[in-house]
Design a protein around this nucleic acid. Sequence first.
DNA 1: GAGCACTGC
Length: 660
Amino acid sequence: MALQFWKPGTVAPGSSLDRATEAEGHVLQSAPLTAAGGIQAQRERLPIFKHQLPQYLYESGWAAQGHVIACTQPRRVAATSVATRVAQEVGTLLGDEVGYTIRFEDVSDKERTRIKYMTDGMLFRETMRDPLLSKYSVIMIDEAHERSIYTDLLLGILKKVRRKRPALRLIVSSATLDATSFHEYFTTGEGCTQQDAVIISLEGRMFPVEVAYLKEPCSDYVMEAVRIVWEIHLRQGPGDVLVFLTGREEIDRCISEIAERIPTLPKGSLGLQPLPLYAGLTTDAQLAVFQPAEKMSRKVVVSTNIAEASVTIDGIKFVVDCGFVKIRTYNAKTTLSRLTVVPTSRASATQRAGRAGRTSPGICFRLYPESAFNDRSIMPTTTPPEIVRTDLTMPILQLKALGIDDLVKFEWVTNPPAEGVLRALEALIGAGMVGDDGRLTLVGEKVAEWPVEVNIARALFSSKEYKCSEEMLTIAAMVSVQDVFVIPEGGSAGALAELERRKFTAEEGDHLTLLNAYNAFIRYGSSLSWCRQHALNFRALSRAVSIRSQLKKYMQRFGLTPLQSCEGDAQRLRRCIVAGFWKNAARFVESEGTFRGVRGEGVLYIHPSSVMFTRKPRTGWVIFHEMEETKKTHIRIITEIEPDWLLEYGHKYVDKRTGQ
DNA sequence: GAGCACTGC
């Protein structure tokens, strides 16, 4: 069957979705969804929206006999907000026929829920308990173009599930040009036919957006952005501006440059109100971008990629796009992750431009020449999926837990790099999670179920022996969230925050400092105002509370109870951390003031956010939570240890590697 | 003596 695309947002009169490919449209499919009746909802020529597909399927009987229609989203907010909207449209209470399931929150009913919105990570997790996902009749994977790691893993699993359970119908929804490749993915291969039910829809933006380019490339896109914002402000009509830059530093610079020029505005002209937006901001500061602009003023939101898909601001009429994005890449050989600024994909550029056309026609100014946009060697069609640039240790452990031992045979949407797969397997074997036969060990099976990384799981398992599970649980939760300590931009506010942080500082290092901050948060009522007073991130701490209580349930389920406190015996706790993180040990080199990793990682620098940044370790040895490469290789979340605590583990490690 | 895109279980 030939692939066809609809024009965004329309279905021909009286057509059912199974006939949609005959009509003009943005739905494309290779097999009809007629087994339980087609969709006859469109008597008149009404626009059909993507989020309504599950409810049409529901009305057409696809949720009969206790079956459930699932719709996955890469993000929690999307899952909850779409579920809320659909529940309203269907006219039921949220959590009744229409519900959602995300981590820490299950607003669905086991018996009654027929349409379930969920994060893709959640559905992936569900495959561990029910490998055939037998209660679902239709699964819609939304925002598949974002290619999150869980989307990819899920698509791979679903292809496998469909071979065993052909009655399962899949809908893959993608906003970009790669729709055809998803189609090919599901219709080729052994046992796959053109009859496999796949519908791929394209989204359309609501209003036209005119795109303008620079004639020549610019050398400093931050200053160029400032110039364009100025021009928009003086020459264009009303409407707010959204500027895309790559990170906090650029955003701060852009904002102060704009602020500096505000006094030069001609008398009587509109004011300008520059506002930063990035994930690390406090809730208060983030909320500011949603407030309407002050009277007689134009709002300029200067944002990271967060405004590309995660956060939607109404009233934006102008977009200024620098054409770059900061992404995390992972080097399997060195086990180093790194943040790099790279040109955006064309798909990203299109998505960013679309942000100008949500409420009215708009204009997007791209800070690069049109020739760059058209040159695939400069701007790729799509961003490389997460699976090719991430640490594969956990994903592979989880695939193995699903019985997928042959990773070469697994039908990846995109193959992960061979090096990454090998290193991950090596790490899992070294950690005793995978045996030499490539199969999961008993420990591996257990750890795969935990929603934490391998090192943390190991420390939690050891916490029973070291009698410090209460504290280890807290530390596990705290290292899983980021930005607990708020760092205001420079000046006196920064120094004040630094003083606040010292109140929680523990001699032993960052792990215990985090523990102190968490305990104080609980002791003083877990309140937002208390966090503000002490320069702590309320959102992060609240999340840590949720994670801790979830992990506590796992401790109970795995018989690691009763939970015990180390009663202030920090040594037990530090030894327990070593039991999980012994591979992340580093030795101080006095003459250089730097560290060397025991795995030969080269020169390591303490991250400035560490309480160890200003001191040298008494014993000369530390354990770190993670390392990251920026201009230098930094280690983060560090605790001082005694070197002989390592001997036990180091021995095992050497044995495995050399075979001695 | 100096820094951190964004998600998710």
